[in-house]
Design a protein around this nucleic acid. Structure first.
Lengths: 133, 133
DNA sequence: CTTATAAAGGATAAAAATTATCCTTTATGT
DNA sequence: ACATAAAGGATAATTTTTATCCTTTATAAG
């Protein structure tokens, strides 16, 4: 159980018990969708409202405290913001993993072939994890 | 106006007037979301149902006739299936462009660092297009 | 060129997902 | 300790997507 009080405040978010619990759920799961997060939260706060989950995730997104990962043919998952990385998704069991990849060569390829000024890169690699192969 | 009759049939989809129009809308727009597609279709079929749009897009996705592109902080757009490519998205005006990038080096990097067997790669590069810079 | 039939379209209801509202409670700066 | 803006909970309202039901139609076979 990490204490995320300061980290929340650093992102201009009041450190409420619900937000601390969301932070810990995100940390322990790594990646979690709204429904699962709601279920997890219900265990700690039996009367928490689903609206609270939505309001918080949206606010946390606005304040860059969490990131959304859009998963092909599935619901988005959320993660605590950390240094840049890509994602691996298992199409069988749905597990999501982080992976650090060097995007520099790709980005310079973009620079030479287009006039876009890229500021953000979202890469999701789908396939089978070890267990599901 | 391209005739997509054969192309639809090749994907086991009956060539109805509505589907031919959807095909042409996808072709002329390149990338289009559900709402815009519905608006476009209403011009040709004043009484087309939104349900028809959803049913067709879902069926076309199942039959790999179209692909979904999940856009960060926005609604998904759809495109006719074509050879593999990545996407550029302008965060200002929302325009979506295709871009061919060599993913081989990246994928071999994945192979050496993980046990995942990758079968699909979704890359979305966000930034500013020429006009919006 | 008919005809039979499975499938598609339209209208609409239902369900699912997300956001807004309103009032009570609480985190936090002073 | 207190004042206050903000957050939580309950719930309504919206929005998005899917299901249902009946009519129409694309298409394959004769």
């Amino acid at each position: 159980m990490i204490n995320y009080t300061d980290e929340l405040r650093r992102h201009n978010l009041k450190a409420t018990p619900q937000r601390l619990a969301i932070s810990n759920a995100l940390h322990s799961y790594g990646h979690i969708n709204i429904d699962t997060l709601y279920e997890m939260m219900l265990k700690k706060f039996s009367s928490i409202s689903l609206a609270t989950i939505y309001k918080n995730i949206n606010l946390m997104l606005e304040n860059s405290y969490v990131q959304e990962v859009k998963i092909p043919q599935n619901k988005s998952v959320y993660e605590l913001t950390k240094s840049y990385h890509s994602h691996l998704v298992c199409t069988e069991c749905g597990v999501v993993e982080d992976i650090k990849l060097n995007m520099i060569p790709l980005l310079s390829e973009v620079t030479t072939s287009t006039t876009f000024e890229i500021s953000k890169t979202d890469l999701v690699l789908s396939g089978l994890c070890k267990k599901c192969q």
